[in-house]
Each structure stands twice: as structure tokens, then as C-alpha cells.
């Protein structure tokens, strides 16, 4: 059995930001595989923290009420049910950037020396604009698992199916934990559930993606687990 060679068509940069196209060549057969890039930033505990959104978040809070830095930090944290733990310095930096870009104006410090910010018309429009824009999922950061899989495929350090199984077990465990949290009545508030659902759906999507990758692997003759084996004829599924 020949070891398949794997030719990267485009995009394999340290930071992969576009769909990855792979041509897997086995003997004379080749298969174009389209591996979707992962939206890793939705799954903070797996791939890192949030990298976007502080600016837009603060701007949106300012549209509602003017406020000073610490107050805005707290508002933002409570609005996200404390899932965002923000650095106060990061908040001040961001507020200054907003003022620089003409989206907010600062007022003179009050008795306690706190500077209050309020939104400008331009800022109001920008907030509305942000809301109107779709999130650019393609602008993802590092995608470790895709890279790992591709590397497993190319290098043979580990069987890709094993990589998938380990990954799947991990995500499934995560999903179970999220689900367990969801059924925990102590966190019965909207934002909390919104985020949990977000995490759950993302994990689910990840699992689906793994499933798809696995199917694609099955289609590669070299990786097919069922070569020379009969597919079990399980006929008990009740189809609606």
C-alpha cells in the first residue's frame, strides 16, 4: 500500500485564515479535500481567548449610557454573565482608541477623577454598522486541529483516525459538561444560557466536522477501515 502524498494547494500559513484545500493523491487517484477552517475563537477554553469584541462591546454600552472606565468594565462583564473577564487597562486603551477614532468623546474628570465617556453620532452609526455586519468566520486565527490532522495525514506520526477519536472524545466530554451546566438550575439566566448554547452548538459543529473528516478519510482507500470487510447490515433503523 502506497503512502498517500498530500499536496497543499494554498493557504498553509502559520495563521490559517482561509479554507484549506488539500489534494490527496494515492497512486493514480486523487481527491480534492476542502477542509473548512475552524472558528476556534468561539471555543475559548480550547483554542484561546476572545480577540475581538471589546471595542464593539464598549461602544454598544456607551450608546445606552455614558460611563467611566471601571463602570463600563463591570457593565460589560455583567452583560456577558462574567464570561468575559476584562483587564481594566484594556478597557481604558480601548476607550482612548474610540475617542481617537471619533466614535466617543471624553468629558472632564469628576470629583473622584473618573473620566466619563459618551458616544458620538459617528460612534452610534459605527455600533449600528457593527451589528449589521456578519461575523467574518473566515478571519479565524490559528486552527490547531486542522493543522494536526493534516500533519498526521502527511507525516504519519499518528493515524488520523486516532487523532479524530481523541479529539472527538475530548469535545464530547466538553459537550457533556456544557450540557450538565445547562441543566444546572443555578445558572438560569439568559446570557449564561446564550453562551452555553453557543458553546454547545460550536462543539457540536466541531463534532460534525470531525465526522465529515472521518467520512472523507474512509473514502481514501488507504484509510478505509472497511477494506475487505462487509458493512454491517443493521436494518433496524426506523425511518420516518
Amino acid at each position: 500500500m502506497s503512502v498517500p502524498s498530500c499536496e497543499l494547494l494554498r493557504g498553509l500559513e502559520p495563521v490559517i485564515s482561509a479554507p484549506i484545500w488539500v489534494r490527496v493523491v494515492v497512486g493514480k487517484k486523487s481527491l480534492d479535500a476542502h477542509i473548512l477552517s475552524m472558528y476556534y475563537w468561539y471555543i475559548p477554553s480550547m483554542y484561546g481567548g476572545f480577540v475581538v469584541g471589546i471595542k464593539e462591546g464598549l461602544l454598544c454600552l456607551l450608546v445606552k449610557n455614558e460611563g467611566h472606565g471601571y463602570q463600563l468594565k463591570q457593565d460589560l462583564e455583567s452583560a456577558t454573565s462574567d464570561t468575559w473577564q476584562l483587564n481594566i487597562g484594556q478597557v481604558y486603551t480601548t476607550l482612548q482608541r474610540l475617542e481617537r477614532d471619533g466614535l466617543a468623546t471624553s468629558h472632564s474628570p469628576d470629583a473622584d477623577g473618573r473620566v466619563t465617556y459618551s458616544v458620538t453620532d459617528h460612534g452610534r452609526a459605527a455600533a449600528r454598522d457593527w451589528m449589521a455586519q456578519p461575523v467574518d468566520l473566515a478571519a479565524a486565527g490559528r486552527d490547531e486541529i486542522s493543522l494536526k490532522l493534516l500533519m498526521a495525514l502527511v507525516s504519519g506520526v499518528e493515524h488520523p483516525r486516532r487523532v479524530i477519536e481523541v479529539q472527538r472524545g475530548s469535545i464530547m466530554g466538553l459537550l457533556q459538561d456544557y450540557t450538565a451546566l445547562k441543566s444546572d438550575n443555578a445558572h438560569d439566566d439568559f446570557a449564561w444560557l446564550l453562551y452555553l448554547d453557543r458553546l454547545i452548538f460550536s462543539a457540536e459543529a466541531e463534532l460534525r466536522w470531525l465526522e465529515r473528516v472521518e467520512s472523507r478519510l474512509d473514502d481514501l482507500p488507504a484509510f478505509s477501515p472497511t477494506v475487505g470487510e462487509k458493512q454491517p447490515a443493521e436494518s433496524m433503523e426506523v425511518t420516518p
Partner: peptide, 29 residues
């Protein structure tokens, strides 16, 4: 997967064999 995730244990079958089992953390809260 989202429904399986409600379970304490998720047993994954593949071709009639157990491929993997994932267990919920006991204290995930």
C-alpha cells in the same frame, strides 16, 4: 452529539464495536 451529551457516559459504536467512551466530569459546575 448534542443529545448524547446529556448522558453521564457516551458510548460510541463503530461497526458493532465500542470505539470510545466519554464520561462527563463529575463536578462540571
Amino acid at each position: 452529539p448534542a443529545y448524547a451529551a446529556w448522558a453521564d457516559r457516551v458510548v460510541r459504536l463503530r461497526d458493532g464495536r465500542v470505539e470510545g467512551i466519554s464520561v462527563r466530569s463529575k463536578t462540571p459546575s
